[in-house]
Each structure stands twice: as C-alpha cells, then as structure tokens.
C-alpha cells in the first residue's frame, strides 16, 4: 500500500529520481575524514535549536516584567521544560564550538581556495549571523547576566566616530537596554535571524554541491562512495558523538551555561561584579580591555574579521596544506593560539 502511494507520486513528480541524483547516487570522495562531517553536525544542531526554540516560545513572555519569571516557569513548572531550555542554551554553545572546528579544518586544509571562495564567504556570514543569534537570545531570559552582557556588547559600537551613538541607540531602541531592546532582540531571535540563517545554510549547501566536496590535501585516491547511505553513516557517527557531549553537559554540568548571575532577575540600576560574556565573546572582551583606545580595539577586531572574510582572495597560493607553507602555516597557528589565549585570559582576568 505504502509502496503503491510512493510509486503513484513518483510517476507524477519523479521524486525518486531526485533522491537518486542527490543522495543515493551522488558520489563523494572516499578519502574524507571526520572533519568533513562538521557541516552535518551543524545541520543537526541547527534543527535541534529550531525545535527547542519553538517549544520555548510556547511559554516565554517577551516583556521585561515577565520574561525572567516565564523562563523560571519553563525550567521549574513545565514538564521537561528544564531539559528543553538546557538543550537550547547549551546546544547554542555547541553550535558555535562546532562552527569554529568546521572553519578551522577548512582553514588548515585550504578548502577555501578556488573554486570554493564563495562557500567560504557565505560560511563567514553564517558565523557572523550565528553570533548575532547568540547575542540576541542571550538577553531574552532578562537575568542580571543577560542584561549586563547585552549592555556591554551593544555599547561597543558607541566609540565609532559620528555614527557610534546613533548605532547604539538604534540597536537598543532606546538609550539603555530596556523593554524596547527586548522587543527588538526577541523579534530578531525568533523570526528574522532563523530565516536568514536558513537561507544562508541553503546557499552554503548549494555552493558546496555546485563546486563539489573538496578532498583532504593528502588524499591521492580518486575513488568515490555514494553519499547515501555510506557517507551518511559516517556523518551519523560524528553527529551522535557530539550529541553525547551535549547531553553530558545538559545532565551533569548545566551550570556551564547558567552561572549564578543568570539566576538573578535583571536590575538595570546595579551592575554585578565580574560580569563576563559567553566564552565565544571572551577574546573580543579581553582585547577591548587590553587596547587602551576602544575605537582602536574595534578597528583591530574589524581588521581581523576582514582578513578572515577575504582570505580566499588574499591567499592565492596553490598549496592547500597549511603545514607545508612556511609563512601562512605559522601565521595561522599563531592566530589560532592567540585567539585561544585571549579567551583563557578573558576568563581568568
């Protein structure tokens, strides 16, 4: 019966042909390693964030007077609300972490080079939009941590000459972080950004399909395997590995995403001691502390972001493996180590 329905549909719209072309008969290089599954892990985490986000939306109230209580209601009263909230918050952290790994592997294996420059550029935009998603979602619980981390983050552009103050006010919707900011961030977090991210991910996958998957620089084989089911199984292994890590944190160490200041409602007239942003903003935070001039700090960060964004157009060397390049290799490793060092320094400072 089921087969008959499928056959009837297939005779009309040739769905199975699409399945064969794009999955079961789509060849991928045989020499791929686990680093090539990071995109699939990110897709899985994105789906998880969307599902948990929709569930949270059913009980969250986007109002400064009620947001914190509604989040408490989700965590304390709604059956399994605590699980949904923890998966959403810690999953977002894991998304950023895997995104870093994905970009790192592409960087070190030189996969951003011709003809995949556009894939890299779209990937960088996805990275920026992801950080915006995290920042906008961070404010929603309206805790001391979320309120003051958002105050600091939205204040940063204020040092830009001429338009800085206007930018801060535009982002916040008012002079201070307020109900208007919460309204803006809520709208961005639950509608504008997820749709944008979905479009960007679609574009990224489309570009990857058009240019083909790159092979590791050391791979000599021309052998291919079908994407489905052979490579899907490889993807699933890595996806479940990361899901295991995610749920280990969710069940055994949730405080990684919920420090004490996250458990106190926002007080706009009292900045708590030692307020720190999430780990992925710690390097930026520490840099702003180190550079004496705030505008200079923003310029340095902008230059670093620009360098990463335009990397495929700056680095035109044909050699892909970073470890075979005497200048680029050490520079890339130094950049990565400096970034990690700033994160650790920011954490302990």
């Amino acid at each position: 019966m089921f087969k008959k329905i499928i056959d009837a549909i297939d005779r009309r719209i040739e769905l199975l042909d699409l399945f064969r072309q794009n999955l079961s008969e789509y060849p991928v290089p045989a020499g791929l390693n686990i680093w090539y599954s990071m995109g699939a892990v990110l897709l899985a985490l994105f789906c998880l964030e969307i599902i948990t986000g929709i569930l949270l939306l059913m009980n969250y109230v986007p109002h400064a007077k009620e947001a914190f209580a509604s989040v408490g209601y989700i965590s304390g009263v709604v059956p399994f609300g605590w699980l949904i909230r923890r998966v959403h918050a810690i999953g977002a952290n894991m998304f950023v972490f895997v995104l870093f790994l994905h970009m790192l592997s592409v960087l070190l294996m030189g996969s951003y080079k011709k003809p995949r420059e556009m894939t890299w550029v779209v990937g960088c935009v996805i990275f920026g939009v992801t950080l915006t998603t995290c920042l906008s979602g961070y404010l929603l619980p309206w805790s001391q941590l979320s309120y003051w981390a958002t105050t600091v983050a939205t204040n940063s552009p204020g040092s830009i000459p001429v338009v800085g103050d206007w930018m801060v006010q535009f982002m916040r919707g008012s002079d201070l972080v307020s109900q208007r900011t919460l309204g803006r961030f809520f709208a961005m977090h639950v509608s504008l950004i997820p749709f944008t991210l979905l479009l960007l991910i679609g574009a990224h996958v489309f570009l990857m399909r058009r240019t083909g998957i790159s092979t590791p620089p050391w791979s000599k084989t021309d052998k291919t395997i079908p994407f489905y089911p052979h490579f899907v199984v490889e993807d699933l292994k890595v996806i479940y590995f990361f899901l295991a890590i995610l749920f280990a944190f969710v069940f055994f160490y949730p405080q990684i995403s919920f420090p004490p200041d996250a458990l106190v409602p926002a007080d706009p007239l009292n900045t708590p001691e030692h307020i720190k942003p999430e780990w992925y903003f710690l390097a930026n935070y520490q840099l702003l502390k180190l550079v004496p001039n705030e505008f200079l700090g923003i310029i340095v960060q902008g230059l670093a972001a620009g360098l990463i964004f335009f990397l495929p157009f700056i680095d035109r060397n044909n050699e892909r493996a970073a470890w075979k390049r005497p200048i680029f290799g050490p520079l890339a490793v130094f950049g990565i180590l400096a970034y990690i060092a700033l994160i650790i320094w920011g954490h302990y400072s």
Binding site: V152, N155, I275
Partner: peptide, 21 residues
C-alpha cells in the same frame, strides 16, 4: 564611559568604580 556598565561609589577610596573592566 567605557562600555556602559554602572559605576559604584566606593567611599573609603573616594572613587567611582566600574565592576566590568
């Protein structure tokens, strides 16, 4: 004036102190 946190008055040091940076 750095990043918008609120300063606190520390009477024994006669200074306003910003807890963020």
């Amino acid at each position: 004036t750095h990043l918008g946190c609120l300063v606190k008055w520390v009477p024994n040091e006669d200074v306003f102190f910003c807890p963020c940076h």
